[in-house]
Amino acid sequence: MIPSASPSEEGPETPICSAKGCREPAVWVLAWNNPKLHTPDRRKTWLACEEHREHLSKFLGARGFLKDTVPLAEWHAPDDG
């Protein structure tokens, strides 16, 4: 699920950055997976604005969780079925 801003902010469907306290529109999808908890093909997602992309990527990368970073406009969520 991709978080979105409240209707009074950017709009009802505007995805927002996952960084704590950030309310900026997201422009990146960081796909990740914790191999201790998830099957290899499972992808969880965090969203990032330009300012927080590097910080969130480093956080996930340091733990070996980061699998892919994709512009939000190009992201296609895997089918769950």
Rank of each mutant, 00 (worst) to 15 (best):
I2Y: 06
I2D: 10
I2A: 11
I2V: 14
P3V: 08
A5G: 07
A5E: 12
S6D: 13
S6V: 06
S6N: 08
P7D: 06
S8R: 07
S8I: 13
S8D: 15
S8H: 03
E9S: 05
E10T: 06
E10V: 04
E10A: 10
E10C: 02
G11V: 01
P12V: 00
E13C: 12
E13G: 05
E13T: 09
T14W: 10
P15Q: 08
P15V: 07
I16W: 11
I16C: 10
I16K: 10
C17I: 04
S18A: 14
S18P: 09
S18D: 14
K20N: 03
K20Y: 08
G21V: 07
G21K: 04
C22M: 13
P25S: 08
P25Q: 15
A26D: 06
A26Y: 13
W28H: 12
W28M: 07
W28P: 09
L30M: 15
L30V: 02
L30D: 13
L30E: 10
L30S: 05
W32T: 01
W32C: 05
W32N: 05
N33F: 01
N33L: 05
N33A: 07
N33R: 09
N34S: 04
N34M: 08
P35C: 00
P35S: 04
P35L: 04
K36N: 14
K36C: 02
L37V: 01
L37F: 10
L37Q: 05
H38V: 11
T39V: 04
P40I: 12
P40K: 06
D41Q: 07
D41S: 10
R42Q: 05
R43N: 00
K44D: 15
K44I: 06
T45N: 15
T45M: 02
T45V: 15
T45R: 11
T45Q: 09
W46E: 11
L47E: 13
C49P: 04
E50W: 02
E50I: 06
E50N: 12
E51S: 11
H52E: 09
E54H: 01
H55G: 10
H55N: 02
H55M: 08
S57F: 02
S57N: 07
F59W: 09
F59C: 07
F59P: 07
F59Q: 06
F59R: 14
L60M: 07
G61I: 01
A62L: 03
A62I: 04
G64Y: 03
G64T: 00
F65N: 15
L66G: 10
D68V: 03
D68C: 08
T69N: 01
V70C: 08
A73P: 12
A73R: 12
E74G: 00
E74S: 10
W75C: 09
H76D: 14
H76P: 03
H76L: 03
H76N: 11
A77D: 14
D79W: 03
D79I: 04
D79N: 10
D79L: 05
D79V: 01
D79Q: 08
D79F: 01
G81D: 12
G81I: 05
G81H: 08
